[in-house]
């Protein structure tokens, strides 16, 4: 086998590839949300990582205090956290649309600090375990690797959500309004469409996507207050690499960078933390606008 030639047992290789694919699906979901939010609100949502963390904690609370299982949490948590996002948008973000981009970044950074600070105060730095649902425990032996059911589910589910989002934005009437309002909100309003409400709902939707990723991440990584902070920085690098101009671009970039990171863990583990940043540097040197970006 070719893998033996490279000196890596196939179990380890495919295991890391799968983990890379899972990380990639979180990168894709989060950068998708960032791109959708940026398109409508002109704000880079620094609180995205904190909202991902909120999603995971929401699932944990639902299980702990209401006995609500994973499957329901998968629906309820994004709605709850999305609603919280809508409150944030109505209270704070809506005042910033006419200002420079950087104020949106600073405000959402402040919100992220507050949320993560509160959760660290009450839940400490160590993570809380969250077990996967009964139906998805165990796995399949594929001969060349062991495939845990839950991990397969995460990859399939997030890929489906990503593609549905893409379909909704690129192929439906609602998506057409959204894209039009991104280009020229005043003109779209003149056609009688309530753009401010669309902006609010878009933010709620983007935040909901982050929370969904958080719920899916809860059984794989522990639920912890810092789970979003380091992730969001990597997702920023992913966004810089892909550019926020295209939805499909965000999905493709997210998944492929996850896979590359997984492969790096196998062949050059020292660089696994930094490989995405190194790729970002290379992209900045060769294609400054990003792989799918429009020159701005």
């Amino acid at each position: 086998m070719i893998f033996d030639l490279l000196g890596v047992p196939p179990q380890a290789l495919f295991g890391q590839l799968l983990l890379g694919l899972i990380n990639g699906s979180f990168y894709a979901l989060l950068s998708l949300g960032l791109a959708v939010i940026f398109g409508m609100l002109n704000i880079i949502n620094f609180a995205h990582g904190a909202q991902y963390m909120l999603g995971a904690f929401c699932a944990y609370f639902l299980l702990q205090f209401a006995g609500i299982n994973y499957w329901l949490a998968l629906i309820i948590a994004p709605i709850v956290v999305g609603a919280f996002g809508i409150v944030l948008e109505r209270l704070f973000l809506k005042h910033l649309y006419k200002l420079d981009h950087l104020y949106g970044l600073l405000l959402t950074f402040g919100i992220a600090l507050i949320l993560e600070g509160i959760f660290r105060r009450y839940f400490g730095s160590s993570g809380i375990p969250y077990s996967p649902p009964q139906l998805l425990t165990g796995g399949y032996n594929l001969g060349f690797m062991y495939l845990p059911k839950y991990r397969a589910w995460v990859v399939i589910c997030s890929l489906t959500v990503c593609l549905l989002t893409w379909f909704m934005i690129e192929k439906t009437r609602l998506g057409a309004y959204l894209r039009a309002a991104t280009e020229n909100p005043t003109l779209v309003r003149a056609f009688g469409i309530n753009v401010p409400r669309m902006i609010t709902l878009t933010y709620g939707f983007g935040v909901g996507l982050a929370a969904l990723a958080g719920v899916m991440a809860a059984p794989i990584y522990n639920v912890s207050p810092q789970m979003g902070a380091s992730l969001i920085i990597v997702v920023f690098a992913v966004v810089v690499i892909g550019g926020m101009g295209s939805i499909m671009g965000a999905i493709v970039t997210g998944f492929s960078l996850g896979i590359i990171e997984g492969l790096t863990k196998v062949f050059f583990p020292q660089a696994s933390n930094t490989v995405i940043f190194v790729i970002m540097v290379i992209v900045l040197l060769t294609r400054p606008a990003g792989l799918f970006g429009r020159t701005t």
Partner: peptide, 13 residues
């Protein structure tokens, strides 16, 4: 961190 975050929000708004 919470206070710092709150200062960010207040300053920006």
């Amino acid at each position: 961190p919470v206070i710092q975050g709150a200062i960010f929000v207040i300053c920006v708004l």
